[in-house]
Design a protein around this nucleic acid. Structure first.
Length: 826
RNA sequence: GCCGAAGUGGCGGAAUGGUAGACGCGCCGGUCUCAAAAACCGGUGGGAUAAUAUCCCGUGUCAGUUCGAGUCUGACCUUCGGCACCA
């Protein structure tokens, strides 16, 4: 649209040339090279590395530009800052590209990396490219394999059956992303699930320690809450229901409950559809019905199964179990609202005191027996489950106790009689590492008919990902058809062996990449211990909140396991965390190709330069909230940088030709020092939008005093110099150029961040707000040092106040020092 | 559905429980110009009013706490992030 194009404000300097000039100079002079032995205190500040999807999106800039500004700020505070970059280069999209376009995942990924490197350089960040990490390269992923073997040796890696999403038509494993409304995205076939032997890491061994956030200096509370809920620690009792009548190897059904006090209210037992006892206990007459139900449950997603809204379904399996506390036989059902992955995969149904059990009992006409009497219970069957406290009833010897007392007494008795024991369960599940994919790290294990599972010897690492594989679906992992890869020798006996053909989850790569940044070229191990110990832990990590639970928990687990293997002496990888928000299209919708609202940073940077884009992204709003891109909004910062340019180019000597106004000089000093203080505090806390607003106010002030010619050249030069220093981390190219034009020595990025003077920042006068009954009625300018008595008297003497007090009694006068007086009348 | 957030002018947003709307966009008016753009100067929440006097209303909705609530508490509505194979 021509109207939009006309509205675009142009920089009054050659932004593109200045970007290029300084990027080349910084590169040539290596001013951002990070030395391990630099004597300054170390500051390791990381932003989550991007997936090389092809083009750098403005969303990447939104993550990278402010984090670079913060790292630059720390650098100017005197730290030796490591602010590295890399690429999360393994993953599904590369394989999709291979299938759809016939490009090899390696070619696709590395050409994307190449393009994104160029784009990232255009940002003008302080990345030390010698420390770049690309995790699809053997020199990186060999250490994934090395770690895998270490974890295996520690007993932290194990194999077990686990379901994968399966498309029966494509004969392939699907990622959740490839399933839309329960059908395969490629062929619309309804998906099901299949059990595969897969590798897991025992993250649950660390569940309790992962709940300890005490040493994390500064993580957002919401992330800690999400992690806490994700881990989901529950204390309760594991108790068996007797099924010895069936003559099975299993003599009981183990259930987990957090409400053992309600055990006398059990009127049924529910098994998860995947529970191994389902097949064994189902009676002949029920078999067909139960099998059909189990098959149907395999197609349902967990989100649907756990939905409280969805109608509960289940099938009676034609068997019963005995509640040992009251010797009652209760029917056994299979129902998909019970999951195998939580607790024991079996629950005791207590409809009177559990909402889901209540719904289930209503639907299948099962008895509902109150055993915890609410305070004013009328003795009738309740209208809904009573979750709250009460007194034990219908519970034999425990009647009359409170529910809390009952829970303790029953747990003690259950333990004494050997029917069960107190237990803790977690919602957190072990980390499933295996992927039936090509584009990932090969799992370095060999299967031998004689020796079983054997790790590949360290000396044979890396197990290279072969170039040729079958990306099209065959029903097996893509590597399985590669005979040369699969067939090997057993590391133990030398006989024939078969390699593991699954690859690793890409969260493996991101679990330890911060360590690789410390010593990226080291080839004696994943990292060189002493140097890594100097840098680690990461002082500040920034990235999207979408990684709140998975990546951030995996990484915490990983570091703790390395610590326990003696490789590191830290408990946590990331001391501080900040989550930026999401940048939206100018239509306030999520950016997507289909909506056509995607902003290409190359285009904008080519028009207005990197600094205007950086400034605008930081100015949109609070970084953690994200916000919409705006083609018009960016005019504001372009215009501002233009004004900055003019202001700095003025010849300060002109000022000395005019008489100075001492009040204007004092005001100007105050504005400058308040700006320094404000920016120092705000940049520290990632509050870029208000820092830039404060800098704009300073520029507005300087424009006024230039027009008035009311300050002396010395005051002016002091303002300009400090202003450029504060601008440097935000707009590094323009700041550098103006620093040079202003006659200062290269480089502005090797200067210290300015410090304010509290006396110069102080206000001499304040506005005293006077309220009557909380409503503002007057504002009085008073000396900043005014005393309480004087303030109260001034307030009461105000004519505007008296007009509102007139005829009423003054009941109270509230005084807030330096701010307001509130006269309460009635 | 569950877990976690967020709702303030036409728009993005600012505001240690104490002057709601800083800063910017957009818009309106002016200066400059043959004219336009740019630049610069001024105005800009709604209503009553001749008024930049004064008063009333106003931070998603409804209650509550408080001398005082955008901010704290509870319930609800809407939008967004995550839900274990997207990364």
């Amino acid at each position: 649209m021509t109207t939009t194009a006309q509205r675009q404000v142009e920089p009054r300097y050659d932004a593109v040339a200045i970007d290029r000039k300084w990027q080349e100079r910084w590169e040539r002079d290596r001013i951002y090279r990070v030395e391990d032995d630099d004597p300054r205190p170390k500051w390791f500040e990381m932003t989550m590395y991007p997936y090389p999807s092809g083009d750098l999106h403005i969303g990447h800039w939104y993550a990278m530009a402010p984090s670079d500004a913060h790292a630059r700020f720390r650098r100017m505070q005197g730290y030796n800052v490591l602010h590295p970059i890399g690429f999360d280069a393994f993953g599904l999209p590369a394989e999709n590209a291979a299938i759809s376009r016939g490009v090899h995942p390696y070619e696709w990924t590395m050409s994307n990396v190449e393009n994104m490197r160029r784009q990232l350089r255009s940002l003008g960040a302080i990345y030390d490219w010698d420390r770049e990490v690309v995790c699809c390269l053997p020199e990186y992923y060999r250490w994934n394999q090395w770690f895998f073997i270490k974890l295996y040796e520690q007993g932290l890696a194990y194999r077990a059956k686990a379901p994968v999403v399966w498309c029966p038509s494509c004969q392939t494993v699907l990622a959740n992303e490839q399933v839309l409304n329960g059908v395969c995205e490629r062929c619309d076939t309804t998906i099901t699930r299949r059990d595969f032997e897969q590798w897991f890491f025992r993250i649950t061994d660390y569940a309790d320690e992962l709940l300890d956030f005490d040493t994390l200096d500064d993580w957002p509370d919401k992330i800690l809450t999400m992690q806490r809920n994700w881990i989901g620690r529950s204390e309760g009792v594991e108790i068996g229901f007797d099924i010895s009548d069936y003559g099975l190897e299993e003599r009981e059904i183990r259930t987990f409950t957090t409400r053992i006090d309600t055990i006398f209210g059990v009127t049924f037992i529910v098994l998860a559809p995947e529970h191994p006892l389902v097949a064994k206990l189902t009676s002949a007459s029920k078999r067909a019905e139960v099998e059909a139900y189990v098959e149907q449950a395999r197609a349902a997603s967990e989100i649907d199964r756990l939905s409280a809204e969805r109608e509960k379904t289940g099938v009676f399996i034609g068997a019963s179990a005995r509640n040992r506390l009251n010797n009652e036989q209760v029917p056994i059902y299979v129902a998909d609202y019970v999951l195998t992955t939580y607790g024991t995969g079996a629950v005791m149904g207590v409809p009177a005191h559990d909402t889901r059990d209540f719904e289930f009992a209503r639907k299948y006409r099962l008895p509902i027996r109150t055993v915890i009497a609410p305070i004013e219970w009328n003795g009738r069957e309740p209208e809904e489950a009573h979750i709250g406290p009460g007194f034990m009833t219908n519970s034999g010897a425990y009647d009359g106790m409170t529910d809390e007392e009952g829970a303790i007494a029953i747990a003690n008795d259950v333990e004494r009689r050997g029917w069960g024991h107190r237990a803790v369960t977690y919602r957190l599940r072990d980390w499933l590492i295996s992927r039936q994919r090509y584009w990932g790290t090969p799992i370095p294990m060999v299967y031998c008919n004689e020796c079983g599972v054997q790790p590949v010897p360290e000396s044979e690492l890396p197990v290279l990902l072969p170039e040729d594989a079958e990306f099209r679906p065959t029903g097996e992992s893509p590597l399985a058809i590669n005979e040369a890869f699969v067939n090997t020798v057993c590391p133990k006996c030398g006989g024939p062996g078969r390699r593991e053909t699954d690859t690793m989850d890409t969260f493996m790569d991101s679990s330890w990449y911060m360590l690789r940044y410390c010593t990226p070229q080291f080839d004696g191990g994943p990292f060189e211990a002493e140097t890594a110990a100097d840098w680690m832990p990461v002082q500040q990590y920034t990235g999207g909140a979408e990684h709140a639970v998975m990546h951030l928990l995996y990484s915490r687990f990983f570091i703790k396991s390395l610590r326990d293997m003696g490789m590191l002496d830290i408990d946590e990888p990331f001391m501080r965390l900040f989550n930026q928000g999401v940048i939206l299209g100018s239509d306030h919708e999520k950016m997507s190709k289909s909506r056509g609202n995607v902003v290409n940073p190359d285009d904008v940077v080519g028009q207005v330069g990197a600094d205007a884009v950086r400034c605008f992204l930081m100015f949109i709003g609070p970084w953690d909230q994200g916000g919409p891109w705006s083609d018009e909004g960016i005019n504001g910062v372009v215009r501002w940088l233009n004004r900055v340019w003019s202001l700095v180019e003025y010849d300060a000597r002109e000022l000395d030709a005019h008489p100075t106004d001492p009040v204007a000089v004092r005001d100007t000093q105050r504005v400058l020092h308040r700006t320094i203080r404000k920016c120092y505090d705000d940049l520290d806390k990632f509050k870029f939008n208000t820092s830039i607003a404060a800098l704009m106010e300073l520029v507005n002030h300087l424009s006024r005093v230039w027009n008035d010619q009311s300050v002396d050249a010395g005051t002016w030069r002091d303002c300009i110099e400090n202003f450029l220093l504060i601008l440097a981390p935000i707009a590094p190219h323009v700041a550098e150029e103006l620093w040079e034009r202003n006659g200062h020595a290269y480089s502005v990025h090797q200067q210290a961040f300015p410090i304010w003077d509290d006396d110069l920042a102080a206000e001499e006068e304040i506005t005293l707000v006077v309220q009557v009954n909380g409503r503002v009625r007057d504002r009085i300018t008073v000396s900043a040092g005014i005393g309480e008595d004087d303030a109260r008297q001034l307030a009461l003497d105000s004519q505007r106040v008296q007009a509102h007090v007139d005829g009423k009694t003054v009941r109270n006068v509230v005084y807030v020092p330096g701010r307001l007086v509130n006269v309460v009348v009635g």
